[in-house]
């Protein structure tokens, strides 16, 4: 599960909306470098924004893949928008809420919000918006051929879906 940036799916409305959460932990290696202490500056561990884009890509990607029974190889093709207003330190939960805007044979567009949840109070704060575009690899316009096997939705994703109680079909 080295590259899973969501921990659990908490809501799925097929082909419409998927909500997933990730708990940010001090045990994550990358937080010790992002950002490490420097001259005259204490360490400031915060979840990298780039990995929150990946978290949203996984959230929205599962939503798009699920809509087609995971038959399509769903690839992140474009980050149309990514805005963040606040940081997420360890000990907080990130909630990714992804919605399908449009879907067609060659791909899909999604919009999404990122919230930071404080487990101490349960309060949720909107901290970002991420809109994405996904391409169905086998339907691409260049006509390029890819392996039959769906390498996008591998074992890591299947485990996550199973653990979250989502039927894979």
């Amino acid at each position: 599960m080295r590259w899973m940036w969501i921990d659990r799916i908490v809501l799925l409305e097929p082909a419409k909306r998927l909500v997933a959460v990730k708990n940010v932990s001090m045990a994550e290696e990358h937080l010790h470098d992002h950002f490490a202490a420097g001259p005259g500056q204490p360490a400031q561990p915060i979840m990298p924004a780039s990995l929150m884009v990946e978290g949203m890509a996984q959230t929205a990607g599962i939503l798009v893949g699920h809509a087609e029974g995971f038959r399509e190889k769903v690839i992140l093709a474009k980050v149309s928008r990514a805005e963040f207003t606040e940081d997420v330190p360890p000990g907080y939960t990130i909630r990714y809420d992804a919605r399908v805007e449009q879907m067609g044979p060659s791909g899909a567009s999604t919009s999404g919000t990122v919230e930071r949840i404080d487990p101490a109070t349960g309060a949720a704060t909107l901290i970002g918006r991420i809109d994405l575009m996904f391409s169905h690899l086998d339907q691409n316009m260049s006509g390029e051929k890819f392996p039959e096997e769906n390498f996008v939705f591998g074992e890591g994703f299947r485990t996550l879906l199973r653990q979250s109680g989502v039927a894979i079909g």
Binding site: A77, K78, S80, E101, Q102, G104, P105, S106, G107, S109, M133, S135, Q139, N140, M141, S142
Partner: peptide, 22 residues
């Protein structure tokens, strides 16, 4: 780039209420 064409198609469909088959 190629993916932008899909983006443009989606946006045209939404803005003009038209259907653009692949």
């Amino acid at each position: 780039e190629s993916i932008d064409f899909l983006d443009i198609v989606f946006k045209l469909e939404q803005a003009f209420g038209i259907k653009i088959p692949q």
